[in-house]
Nucleic acid binder design. Structure first.
Length: 818
RNA sequence: GCGGCUGUGGUGGAAUUGGUAGACACGCGGCGUUCAGGUCGCCGUGGGGGCAACUCCGUGGAGGUUCGAGUCCUCUCAGCCGCACCA
């Protein structure tokens, strides 16, 4: 007997070579060519930096399992790969080393490509691209121009987030707890002219369409919160002294009669005008100056005591004509609503706190609760004879109607979502295709002149303006309109722009005439299954949805495509010793080391076996070794069976051991199939294959026949293929001589799923007292009689009165006694 | 503060519609193979009691519904995540 040793270093490259030579995973654009349905399976594209880390191994292991399962379920599967290759890490690396970001990025891309092949991920490499290639970003620029011409991209001066370490502005979405997402530096507010996408135009659709996509509920909730739609009213408060009307937004017009003061944000343009000439002028000026220099973090501290300054002026409450004193206070934000509020201390906690500090009157207008402030529902009081006594929700409607009739207000909706600030004062990004001409002003670069190629420069360091500004012969250009002298826009685009449409480009990756052929999109879009980290819940995933809706409106997408990702799966993190892996903690487990030691199959399988893939899981070396041992046993059993056991068919009349093995095989088919199509419970799928192997193993020690053993082991290989493709292909080939990926996904034979008997659980008062084999077709009375005969059941029935009999067919009998 | 998720052996985790809690694996222990270690194979492994048959307890905690609850309901504790002066 030959010695059989599982050797992934021999097995894995062999199959990788077959798949590469035969272009196995390539799929042509060929709608309906052979009648198979199409499926688009996509994992979020990697940012190529250094080497792949273990999170990459996990996301592509999950995605590859889905892709393989879809293929063998009869679908044509698009499963491409690309690189999100513009961005700050490559640029920061360039600043430190002087090496062009393109070089370090290309080196990283090579390392990613090599490792993805070594992992055996089934990718259609013909569609590969990097977003930093002119062939790609040419079309990023084209999309920008489409949005610009539709008024969805615009340049505007605004108070924006400035990251003093990265020396660039950031989008709202990239500021976390007042700090830059990457740098961790406290963000400053600067008044700057920047490029924006008008994502707020799409707020309602982005919100409403969440209902139609199959995404994890928590991700939808995060998007809903981020969009932050609130319904209410805009109400006019008049300042007679200055002859100005101020609009305020309120969600509680039912509490208008309880307003006792009025507050403006420090940034409100009228604050100093109002205070001018009053005794409060100096104090107000000092307060505003102090507020404007506060960091976002200080400003946002909820527990900080309320502060503010009276402005010495009043506005008139439109519902009762009362004069309300105006204050400036930093708890009112300029960027939400109108930057001015009516304050109702009796029914708003913040207004209440402020009123306490400054001794302002508190007037209850809603009944309910023991103490103020009371923010719940209740009947109106102290308001107006027309409304007092009405429930506040009804009163709200009536007051709104009254305001509308009187021209003093109207229903209104506010959003937390801000427009997407896309310009960055950095080098390694997609140039914004705009030139500025003294004669013609802002001029878009005509589509036929794209791409605007990113020039090579010497000095990448940010200086508070884009490093591109130093590339004088690039900046100086001619106006496409008048041929006069003009200067290029030197800011580059946020890399999230690049990744907001890459999944469209895969469908038609090498089109030189257009960003895509709509027919190609019609074949594949939307992405049927998208897989990635939850950290992109409101950045990438919201931006991509906006792009699709805008492009659909502009007529660039096939009918019916309104969402990029029909289903989303968010995978959890792999931690080590309970902590996120990081170089500073020294707890990084590089995939390359794992693959070197155990092979890719073990690495992929263990990562999927460790727990449900949507949850975080802790890496354990001994766990990985356990998986290696399992794959070794399976492979060795297949090699031995191939050598020693005659190639008999499945026996027609199997003996008892064969039958157990065959039943287990069909049971495993059913279990794995269910795990694949439902919640991606790959951990239980792999466990089912392990159970199958264990059954075969004990069957071989017994009397199982060669045909049954061969079938069961081949089935184990077939079921394991989506997770461990190399060893599974080997196992299947050893036993059948054929290629497992060319076989359809196995179907369980119902005849093997049900036995002639089952184990009847016999309970007395809900406690298990015995178990007995019972015929599968036994009726209720037979089962009851059988249960009552069992010795331990009889012992517990003895001396008691039987009051109830419960029978669950195929499962159990419960006898209730007193 | 608001919203969401998660609590099951020494560990990671299983458990269709409420129906045998702890599948599968790690770890640990025993036996065999081996000069030995490792590998490999077999057996055992929630806790307490008992020689055993068996029995009591057990899914963060407290109640409840039910013949029967890890699963459903109410309250509560802990951990993680998201949002947070959004009017």
């Amino acid at each position: 007997m030959a010695e059989h040793r599982y050797d992934p270093k021999r097995i894995e490259p062999r199959w990788q070579q077959v798949w590469a030579d035969e272009h196995t995973w390539e799929v042509a654009n060929d709608p309906g060519a052979d009648g198979r349905d199409s499926a688009y399976v996509l994992e979020m594209l990697p940012y190529p930096s250094g080497e792949p880390h273990i999170g990459h191994l996990k996301v592509y292991s999950v995605g590859d399992a889905v892709a393989h399962f879809q293929r063998r379920s009869g679908r044509r599967v698009l499963h491409p790969m690309g690189y999100d290759a513009f961005g700050l890490p490559a640029e920061n690396h360039a600043i430190q080393t002087g090496r062009h970001p393109r070089e370090s990025t290309n080196a990283a891309i090579e390392s990613f490509q090599r490792q993805f092949r070594e992992w055996g991920i089934s990718i259609d490499w013909t569609r590969e691209f990097a977003t930093c290639e002119p062939e790609y970003y040419r079309w990023t620029q084209w999309i920008f121009l489409q949005l610009y011409e539709a008024g969805l991209a615009y340049k505007h001066e605004a108070a924006v987030n400035w990251d003093p370490v990265e020396e660039t502005v950031l989008a709202n979405e990239q500021v976390v707890d007042g700090r830059g997402e990457r740098s961790g530096a406290l963000v400053e507010i600067r008044q700057l002219e920047q490029w924006f996408f008008r994502i707020t135009d799409y707020a309602d659709r982005l919100l409403d369409d969440l209902g139609g996509i199959d995404w994890p509920e928590h991700v939808k909730t995060m998007q809903r919160n981020w969009i932050g739609r609130s319904e209410g009213a805009e109400v006019t408060f008049r300042c007679e002294a200055l002859d100005v009307d101020y609009q305020v937004f309120t969600t509680r017009p039912d509490t208008l009669f309880g307003a006792t003061f009025f507050v403006m944000a420090p940034e409100h343009p009228d604050v100093l005008k109002l205070a001018a000439g009053t005794e409060h002028e100096a104090e107000a000026r000092a307060y505003v100056n102090r507020a404007l220099t506060e960091s976002l973090e200080e400003r946002g501290d909820v527990d900080k005591p309320k502060t503010g300054v009276a402005l010495g002026q009043t506005v008139t409450n439109p519902v009762n004509g009362e004069e309300l004193p105006i204050y400036v206070a930093d708890y009112v934000l300029m960027e939400y609503g109108t930057g001015a509020i009516m304050a109702v201390p009796a029914h708003d906690e913040r207004d209440f706190d402020f009123a306490q500090v400054y001794g302002l009157p508190v007037r209850r207008v809603i009944d309910g609760g023991d103490e103020l402030p009371y923010t719940g529902d209740g009947p109106l009081v102290n308001s107006h004879p027309d409304f007092d006594g009405l429930g506040n929700r009804e009163a709200l409607q009536r007051i709104l109607e009254w305001l509308d009739r009187e021209g003093k207000g109207h229903p209104s909706v506010n959003y937390r979502l801000r427009d997407w600030l896309l310009s960055r004062q950095r080098y390694w990004g997609c140039p914004i295709p705009i030139v500025y001409c003294d004669a013609c002003g802002t001029v878009p670069v005509p589509a036929e002149q794209l791409p605007v190629v990113l020039p090579d420069i010497e000095d990448y360091a940010p200086k508070g303006r884009s490093p591109l500004a130093a590339a004088e012969d690039w900046v100086a250009t001619t106006c496409p309109n008048c041929d006069g002298p003009a200067r290029r826009e030197t800011d580059t685009m946020d890399t999230f722009v690049d990744s907001s449409w890459y999944f469209l480009r895969y469908c038609d990756a090498h089109n030189d005439e257009a960003a895509w052929d709509p027919a190609a999109l019609a074949e594949w879009m939307p992405v049927d299954q998208y897989i990635g980290g939850v950290e992109h819940a409101i950045l990438h995933l919201l931006y991509a949805r906006f792009f699709i809706k805008a492009l659909a409106d502009l007529g660039h997408l096939p009918d019916g495509v309104q969402e990029p990702f029909a289903r989303l799966f968010t995978q959890g993190m792999i931690t080590k010793d309970g902590a996120k892996m990081s170089k500073s903690k020294g707890n990084v487990v590089p995939p390359r080391e794992i693959v070197d030691r155990y092979g890719a199959d073990t690495a992929r399988c263990y990562i999927l076996f460790i727990g449900p893939p949507d949850q975080d899981a802790d890496w354990s070396d001994s766990g990985a070794e356990g998986m290696f041992r399992f794959l070794s046993r399976l492979w060795r059993a297949a090699a031995e069976a191939a050598e020693e056991l005659p190639d008999h068919p499945i026996p027609d009349a199997p003996n008892a051991d064969s039958l157990r093995v065959l039943r287990k095989a069909h049971w495993a088919i059913e279990r794995v199939t269910a795990a694949m199509s439902g919640r991606f419970a790959f951990n239980t799928a792999i466990a089912a294959v392990q159970e199958l192997y264990n059954e075969v193993s004990s069957g071989r020690r017994g009397d199982a026949e060669p045909g049954a053993v061969r079938f069961a082991l081949a089935t184990a290989g077939s079921l394991l293929f989506p997770f461990a493709p190399h060893v599974s292909a080997d196992v299947f080939e050893l036993l059948t001589g054929t290629r497992v990926w060319e076989e359809p996904w196995p179907a369980a034979d119902p005849a093997y799923l049900e036995g002639d008997t089952f184990e009847l659980v016999c309970q007395v008062n809900g406690k298990v007292r015995d178990r007995v084999q019972a015929p599968s077709d036994a009726d209720r009375d037979t089962l009851l009689a059988l249960a009552r005969e069992q010795p331990n059941v009889r012992a517990h029935l003895d001396g008691h009165e039987l009051v109830k009999e419960i029978v669950v067919p195929g499962k159990l009998v419960n006898l209730v006694v007193r």
